[in-house]
Every structure is written in C-alpha cells, then in structure tokens.
C-alpha cells in the first residue's frame, strides 16, 4: 500500500498552485509541512480525488483517485473545513458513514471507531453541542470507520488544546504503526516534530525537502542567518567581524548599519559580544533579519 505522486502540477489559469511534485508515501506517519498558501491542501485534495491534477499522476495503491469513487473504500479523509451535520449525534454520523461504506457490520464498526477516538461517552449528543476537539475526533472516527489503509488529515491539530493535541498525536502514531499510510498537513514545525519521522516540506507549490525530520531540522537550524547590527562605530566593527570565522559577509550601510551574514546562529551570537568588548565598540542593536517560518522554508527551497 502506498500513495504516489508522479510529476504532479496543478494550476488555475496563470496561477500555479502545485509545481511538479513527486513523492511516495509509505506506511507510517508522514507530515506535510509548509507555510500557509504553499499548496498543502491542494496536494491533499488531489490525493483524495477532489481535484484533478493539471499534469502528472496521483495514484492511491496503484489507482488514480480522480473520478474513481471505489478508491474511498481504502481511503479516509479528514478535511480542514469543520463541516458536520450538526443535527446528528456522533453515533448517527459515524453509523451513516459505516452504512455508506457498505460494511458488513456497520454497528460494530461504528462502536469500534468511536472507541478509538474516545468519543463513546458523548456519542449520543448532537454534534452541534460538541467542542472543536470533539468534533474533530468525531470526524476522524467517521474517516476511520471502514478501517482505511490510507488516512489523509488536513491541519488536524488546528484549534485543539494541548491535551487533545497529544491524544490525536498518539492516535496517528498508532495508525502509522499498524501499517497505514497516514499523512497530515501542518504549518507548525513543532507539530510535525512530535508526530512524524518523515516529512515532506512544500513551499510555494514546490517540494522543498523530503525525508527524515531530524536531518531537515538540522538543515533549518544550521542555515545562514542574517542580522542587522547598529553600533557606535560600524566600520571598525565590520573589520573586526570579517576576522571571525562564523561570519560569511558584511554589508555597510550608512543608515541601516551593518548587515551581517553569519554561517550559523550559535557561534555568531556568542562571538559578537566578545568582539565588541575587545574592540571597545558599543553595540546598540542586534536584530535577526529573517526568523519567520516562511524564510526558513524558502531557505530549504534554495538548498
């Protein structure tokens, strides 16, 4: 069982949402990481058969998912939009899913799925009375009721409190260990860290990095950093900084002060105070220039 993307692109008129992505998802948990608007949902929707790829192929267990309803017998989707029939109880909602999946024993499957997400005690209340986390779990139960081999979740941790998050993470882990292909998207680095060993990073519609989480994390922390420094004597400080091995380059600007490109974060921030002290230069400001997640991601894109 695997999910395969082969040279997949998706464009809307002139706008390219997903650009030539190829990946293979094996059993286990994979995180789909990227800033908002990067194309994560588009990728998930193409996997789930809700969008036709403009070019390339999306295969779930060797079959295309677009215009192929039988694929849903082995695929479960938890979409980001929190849309549920609020007038149903969790039990009715999951049971309806089980019946539409044409399961041999829909009642038993429903009980098992609700038990899995720990919603059994609240199963007879209408969904509209639930908290966000309970709704999310109910939707997960409905997506799991037919025991799918592939589970796709779009931003499953959004709006959950830490305890619900932890519970959901455990659940995803268990699913992965049971040999299912579990893919969840997130724009928060730390979420991926706790759940997933493998990540696929998407930036601006392109696959920026893929592989083991730890090596990608190292890539992210060891990337060059840019700082803006203002001091009592910028030019003299620039000369001193150029002698420092952790500094890759310095620009001098009369108004902005110095723009320092440092090879790595830790060494430079430890070296700067020592240099200032030894040269007797007073540092007024030290501002890291690009610490946003977007810049971290775009660095990966260039790497």
């Amino acid at each position: 069982m695997k999910v395969e993307l082969d040279g997949v692109s998706k464009w809307y008129g002139n706008l390219v949402a997903v650009n030539d992505i190829s990946m293979v998802l094996a059993p286990g948990v994979t995180g789909l990481l990227g800033p908002n608007g990067a194309g994560k949902t588009t990728v998930l929707h193409m996997m789930a058969g809700f969008l036709a790829p403009s070019r390339g192929q999306v295969l779930v267990d060797g079959e295309p998912s677009w215009r192929n309803p039988p694929v849903y017998a082995k695929l479960g989707l938890v979409s980001e939009r929190e849309a549920v029939h609020g007038f149903l109880t969790a039990y009715e909602f999951v049971l309806a899913s089980a019946k539409m999946q044409r399961l041999a024993d829909p009642v038993a499957a429903t009980r098992r799925a609700l038990d899995l997400v720990e919603m059994t005690s609240a199963q007879d209340r209408r969904i509209e009375t639930y908290s966000k986390g309970m709704r999310q779990r109910t939707r997960v139960a409905a997506a799991l009721v037919h025991d799918p081999k592939v589970l796709l979740l779009d931003e499953p941790f959004n709006g959950m409190d830490p305890r619900q998050r932890l519970h959901m993470m455990e659940l995803l882990h268990r699913m992965g260990e049971q040999g299912r292909v579990v893919l969840f998207s997130s724009h928060i680095l730390e979420e991926v860290e706790q759940v997933s060993g493998t990540v696929q990073v998407i930036v601006s519609g392109r696959l920026a990095a893929s592989g083991d989480y730890r090596s990608i994390r190292r890539l992210m922390t060891n990337r060059p950093h840019v700082f803006t420094v203002q001091s009592s004597d910028d030019r003299r400080l620039a000369v001193a900084l150029m002698g420092e091995t952790s500094v890759a380059g310095v620009d001098v600007d009369a108004k902005l002060g110095l723009t320092v490109r440092a090879a790595d974060y830790g060494t430079f921030t430890r070296a700067l105070p020592k240099i200032a002290l030894s040269t007797g230069i007073r540092v007024h400001r030290l501002i890291p220039a690009d610490e946003s997640l977007e810049s971290v991601f775009s660095y990966l894109l260039a790497a």
């Binding site: 309803p69 039988p70 939009r81 849309a83 999946q101 409905a142």
Partner: peptide, 15 residues
Amino acid sequence: DDGTVVHILTKPLPR
C-alpha cells in the same frame, strides 16, 4: 455550501 457534501463524496458509492 457548508462543505458537508465531502462526507458523502468520500464514500465508494456510484455518484
């Protein structure tokens, strides 16, 4: 409109 149609569409049912 409200997106609940996705629940019905993600089932192996002939359209």
